[in-house]
Design a protein around this nucleic acid. Structure first.
Lengths: 254, 254
DNA sequence: GAAATAGTGTCTCTTAGACAATATCCA
DNA sequence: TGGATATTGTCTAAGAGACACTATTTC
């Protein structure tokens, strides 16, 4: 084509992969949950053997979008290529296009985030592009020196996660199919800070009435679990209900 | 730079400009409010004298991002260049990068929306790039044959407006500094459909208690307006309070 | 029985929601 | 006075928030 205008030097897709890890402190106790982000350590050489830019630094997985795909498709592809992880729910949240963000030139990053169940990251493995992969807590991650403007991207992604956690049933992607209320509470508390969630009496009374959560039954009677307590605790699952909230009304829309 | 990867053929910034027009039906009556979008009719030649692609079609204002600016800055610039409109609150909401969206090549669009007070669009004028500018109601606009994938972009923008209207104090950007409850109600109803808003008794009782709205006083007494009714109606303004909602609690966060 | 988690009982206060009544002003 | 818009009264039922109490199991 006739080039009538200046073109960017590259278009990349980056992905902030979040998960919540469970660490059981002792038996019959709800596990300690922590929000973590998966970062890769950039290899010295890329998979084509060329010296890699920002090599050795920790970074969000991602890479150049091919001309025959969208950034979304690239996100899926790079995530698999670089970390071996597959089949996650990817969401766009922003574009980073400051002219100075990448000293190779004018490179635009289309940023995504992913909510991953801890188990879905089990398959992660280092690759040619990533000499190391690790999960970092947000404190750890924000203290690292990251490649490019990935620090800002990560910061924004965290903000989106918090918003989505409060406004949607995002929490379900961090939980097993069937879960106990204290697990849900634990997930919410890794990201949200709210007395109506942290106060047991309030949360345990309110949660079962939420329209997007239902108690699990088996053989006609309520299904309980002793995974985290001596007292059998009721199992719940998310329904397909999509709550709609508004600042002008209090009730969740039926 | 050494070009180790395929580069996009262009990076554009597009802007969906929304406003709510007021049409007074008769005296002492709240005006009829309608959500509208500002579109431009693409000129036969661009401002450099080259034949314009998709000429003659209606489209979102926008254009190519320059290498020394961000898409956000380009949005501000193009909006002014193409429509003469300035000083609006611009927000990114999505990226459109389907390989087939523009037959000139691989062109990525960074999409924004703008909420404009009707009066701020008063200055709009046709330019070299835009042989015509008009406000369309959403029904009209969605029925037009638009350039590129602007139909999809507009659709998505509308969805974001609805979400923001429900979740934030976005409504204030459609209203004058001081307004009457029926005006607020009118603005909300152009986008939202909710009995707690459309029912007068419910809305007029609830709205004054909202933490982000306050009654206007003057000389120690409440300020009223007869603009839309024979009965003097209380004037209100938005405060700086940013409401936070959540599906897990009902109250707006203090 | 002690300890730990998972709830429930009860009370108070606030609010939603429905419906009716009142208030203000103009023609 | 009638008509139109802008409120307010009143009632009921539901829910939030606080605090104490009960229930189930293991050691």
């Amino acid at each position: 084509m006739k080039n009538q205008f200046t073109t960017p030097d590259g278009y990349t897709s980056d992905i902030a992969v979040f998960t919540i890890t469970s660490e059981s402190s002792s038996e019959y106790k709800p596990p300690l949950k922590t929000l973590k982000i998966m970062l890769i350590k950039r290899s010295e050489m890329d998979h084509e053997g060329n010296p890699n830019i920002e090599a050795g630094k920790w970074a969000l997985p991602g890479g150049f979008v091919r001309p025959n795909e969208t950034a979304f498709q690239a996100a899926e592809r790079k995530l698999f290529e670089e970390t071996g992880v597959d089949g996650l729910r990817i969401k766009h949240f922003g574009v980073y296009d400051s002219p100075s963000r990448d000293h190779r030139g004018w490179i635009i990053s289309n940023a995504h985030y992913v909510i991953a169940n801890e188990s879905s990251l089990k398959n992660r493995k280092t690759t040619l592009d990533a000499q190391d992969i690790q999960l970092f807590s947000m404190e750890e991650a924000l203290a690292l020196e990251l490649a490019f403007d990935h620090h800002a991207i990560m910061d924004d992604a965290l903000w989106f996660i918090k918003k989505d956690m409060a406004l949607t049933t995002l929490a379900k992607h961090f939980l097993p199919e069937e879960f106990v209320l204290s697990e849900l509470q634990g997930v919410l508390l890794t990201v949200l800070d709210d007395p109506s969630i942290s106060t047991d009496a309030a949360f345990f009374r309110k949660a079962p009435t939420l329209p997007f959560i239902e108690a699990v039954s088996e053989n006609g009677k309520l299904k309980k679990s002793n995974a985290y307590s001596k007292t059998p605790a009721q199992l719940y699952r998310f329904t397909d209900f999509q709550p709609i909230v508004s600042v002008y009304r209090n009730k969740l829309k039926g």
